[in-house]
């Protein structure tokens, strides 16, 4: 058993945990923004797929890495525009639209992939983001390599959390976004357009989701293949709840989940085939359900979440 415990003190384990957490952090922040404005965005899974492809393909076609990130974000924003047009001014069911956007974005991505690369059998590779150790800080044992020897996109993920938290709690815009998720008529009564706030939030949130997807193809790996997002979007929906719709707590949730994930991979090697590996694959999900039960039961969710707002309706 001591081997199972020793994993916790391995540098590689913590480096992996933070790397696995990075795409989740982006996408969770994206989902959190949408939900804080009152829109559940179930398009997240498909938008991550689209972002993963868009970023990777930009670089593959000769673009700069950061241009790839921008293209991914723009792709996400476009799907966000589609989602929010249907759910905000038209007031359609957010569940149905969200699932529709996920299916559309996923299939459209695979279709585009086949159109662009009809002949390929093994996915082509790109020159992905490389780790950028920060002097001195990265020399701290255990914590240093985990937090300060990652790729620039991981740093960006952490910066994003700080920005999202600042905007939500410290700026007039954040106030309006939160109020739109709590009671849209309060926003309208103060002369701000609920439609604009909600659509803007969904577009920015979707852009972040797409960047989360792009992390997979441009930082974690260096090529695009089908099924690579593999349910991460759905995990982010749970992480938002786990974080009680707060950026800081959601960040902790993402790291916790990623740590479980990194841990189970290493645990498989330790137990060496005695226990079927599927059990370990299941572990992070099982633990996240448990964590939800323990943590999120008393969370105060945005009151107007999933409630369409129609101006002038009583």
């Amino acid at each position: 058993m001591s081997e199972a415990f020793d994993i916790l003190f391995q540098t590689t384990f913590w480096v992996a945990a933070i790397r696995i957490a990075s795409p989740l952090i982006f996408a969770t922040m994206g989902e959190l923004i949408c939900e804080r404005a009152g829109v559940l965005n179930l398009g997240i899974e498909g938008i991550m797929v689209a972002g993963a492809f868009a970023g990777w393909f930009t670089v593959y076609s000769g673009g700069d890495l950061w241009a790839g990130v921008l293209v991914a974000a723009a792709t996400g924003a476009a799907f966000g525009l589609l989602h929010s047009t249907l759910t905000v001014p038209l007031g359609l069911s957010q569940h149905v639209v969200g699932i529709g956007v996920t299916l559309l974005a996923t299939s459209l991505t695979y279709f585009t992939y086949r159109l662009a690369l009809p002949e390929v059998t093994s996915p082509p590779k790109i020159e992905a983001f490389q780790p950028l150790p920060i002097p001195f800080l990265s020399d701290i044992p255990l914590v240093g390599p985990a937090l300060f020897a990652q790729t620039p996109l991981t740093y960006l993920a952490f910066i994003t959390v700080a920005i999202v938290a600042w905007v939500l709690y410290r700026t007039p815009l954040g106030l309006a976004v939160r109020a739109a998720g709590e009671n849209p008529s309060a926003v309208e009564a103060q002369g701000i357009s609920v439609t604009a706030i909600r659509m803007g939030a969904v577009m920015v949130g979707s852009a972040l989701m797409a960047v989360g997807g792009a992390f997979l193809t441009m930082s974690a790996f260096n090529s695009f293949f089908f099924e690579m997002v593999n349910g991460r979007g759905w995990i982010c929906i749970a992480l938002v709840v786990f974080g009680s719709w707060r950026p800081g707590k959601a960040l902790l949730g993402a790291i916790l989940f990623a740590a479980f994930d990194a841990y189970q991979v290493r645990l498989q090697q330790v137990t060496g085939g005695v226990v079927p590996y599927q059990l370990f694959l299941m572990l992070p999900y099982l633990l996240s359900i448990l964590a939800l039960v323990l943590v999120a039961r008393r969370a105060t969710y945005p009151k107007a979440l999933m409630v369409p707002y129609q101006k002038g309706e009583r």
């Binding site: 007039p172 106030l175 939160r178 109020a179 709590e182 008529s185 309060a186 701000i192 945005p302 009151k303």
Partner: peptide
């Protein structure tokens, strides 16, 4: 037209800046 989970101040200042 008040948002319950927000403070009095936030409700009042909403949209004034």
């Amino acid at each position: 037209t008040l948002a319950d989970n927000m403070t009095v101040l936030e409700n009042i200042a909403l949209g004034t800046e």
